[in-house]
Design a protein around this nucleic acid. Structure first.
Lengths: 313, 313
DNA sequence: TAAAACATGACAACTAATGTCATGATAAAA
DNA sequence: TTTTATCATGACATTAGTTGTCATGTTTTA
């Protein structure tokens, strides 16, 4: 085997093992101890942070975290990594922030001038818009870690009613509209609730779990209609346009030949309140035919508004 | 210089130059032509897709796109790349899709078993929520390319009034709520408008631009109030809570001691229409005091709704 | 004080890389 | 058709690099 190949093998072995003696490497790779010393000098020259402790019980210690074998990327692949990083740009708090920066640096440094220009352009011509939040999420990393390691959390949480203690089993963490959410099983209330990570005041303690629980994907997929209600709406052309832009409805809109449309689809009773603002906004562009509850709600809402602004102002 | 080092130099040189003769490499690196032939055999063995054309005007041609010199990542850095990729997961259409996949594969393959597990966990416990869109954006890549290359676009665009031809100068492309938007200067209307990339029917032609134009960041930052209007609203506690979650307003909400609040801030006249749905939704939780135009709009809207649902249904 | 570790040097044996020269094949240009 | 520029490959001597063995030191701990 060529020297280069073996050096890399030793690099991976050493950075995974962290602490070892020259003899161990010699045995592992069937080479002499003298050669191991020479190899380690080479690796050290190549920048691997490794130091030796003298004397009995001494040995080598690698300081960096585990290294992967070197990887060859094409320029396009490098650009795609920067593209992905771009999507994280407008988050105020991010886990892996330090790592992302060091990856970006390593890549950017090894790009040639023209490719650097391309990356710069991706950075200035592509964005993933996120509301720029002024809200801090200091416990994001800890929360995430607990979720990934499948640990239960005892935490202090700030909710409508003030700060209380919660005992939960996290399902995962997700970002939406610039905020981080934590769906979790609440042991007190005995059901899955959604928490906001920025409202976690402190994590008091965590405890291991042996068994696996639901993960995020399963949770996202677990939505089901328990109390079906018929949603029946007539839409103008503009109503169709707007409903098509609402994820919750886009699949249910039936478009007629003249461009107008209809929604006629079962939804869960709990979603009536959720869909009301949309149909309020659409005004005459959407005529709700069913459910009556939605119509009542909208009428009541409209009356309140008229009452508030009716004559006074 | 060691052979390995020189091989990498030649790898980078060759993959950047794409087509070259052995003599060129020999001159560049001050080695004999025979050695170049041997090196190229080595690179070829290492998987570099390179082929030779015989005869006069022949030479070597590298098929792959430009390669970067090999990069050493730590395990944590690799995980952070997967984390970034996770944020792109729920987009239906993405540029660089193929590259992202090949990066993910290259990285995943070189991870050790335990690190693979960590990546799997990041994948199942972290998400960046996006509405899952059923809308296709087939021209995303082309649009992006035109934007990055600073080209004007003649396109067929589907808008309220039907499909029309537009002549625009793109500022950039950004994703929001699962949809891709294209702010661009419209030459016909002589102002910057916002287009949706999925509504572009076809790109008829593009033309080069010599000079630089505004880029996305500048555009995001260029919001200015041209027709200032005083927005003055009184909020209940719940009103405060909800306005705080609206990026457009979160900075302007003043919270009183009892938890209620006030907004009193200049906005642009054009934003009145934009903010109306919000205050409609808030109902009695927000009492708009100014501008009168907003109040009028809300009253009119409420009347329309009452008329529609007033007695008939 | 002995044992276990790193550090380093010397040197012979071995292995690999390199350049030179030669020969051949191929394709385009003269 | 001939010449020229190119790749392809082999042989071989020369040079350069790698490895193992042995020797000698140093440092730390049992």
């Amino acid at each position: 085997m060529s020297k280069a190949k073996r050096l890399l093998d030793i690099l991976v072995f050493a950075s995974a093992k962290k602490k070892f003696t020259a003899q161990e490497i010699a045995d592992e790779f069937h080479i002499s101890v003298r050669t191991v010393h020479r190899y380690i000098l080479d690796l050290s020259d190549m920048g691997l942070p490794i130091y030796a402790e003298q004397g009995r019980n001494g040995g080598y210690t690698v300081l960096s975290s585990k290294l992967l074998p070197p990887i060859l990327f094409t320029e396009e692949e490098a650009v795609s990594i920067f593209f992905a990083f771009q999507s994280l740009r407008y988050y105020r708090d991010l886990p892996f922030d330090a790592e992302i920066n060091s990856v970006a640096q390593k890549l950017y440094r090894s790009l040639q001038v023209d490719a650097k220009g391309k990356v710069d352009k991706v950075r200035s011509y592509i964005a993933f818009w996120n509301p720029t939040r002024t809200i801090d999420t200091p416990l994001l990393k800890d929360t995430l870690e607990a979720a990934i390691e499948n640990k239960n959390i005892h935490m202090l949480y700030e909710s409508k009613g003030g700060t209380t203690t919660k005992h939960i089993r996290p399902i995962g963490v997700y970002a939406h509209d610039g905020l981080w959410y934590l769906p979790a099983f609440d042991y007190t209330k005995q059901k899955v609730l959604l928490y906001r990570v920025d409202r976690i005041v402190s994590i008091v303690s965590t405890e291991e779990n042996k068994d696996e629980y639901m993960n995020l994907e399963q949770w996202f997929g677990s939505y089901e209609i328990t109390q079906p209600v018929r949603l029946h709406v007539q839409l103008t052309q503009e109503g169709v346009r707007q409903c098509k832009s609402v994820p919750f409805l886009e699949g249910t809109v039936i478009i007629h030949e003249d461009g107008s449309g209809t929604i006629d689809s079962p939804i869960d009773k709990g979603e009536i309140a959720f869909s009301m603002p949309l149909f309020l906004r659409l005004g005459t562009h959407a005529r709700v035919i069913e459910p009556q509850e939605l119509i009542e709600g909208m009428r009541k809402h409209a009356e309140e508004i008229l009452q508030m602004y009716g004559h006074a102002n």
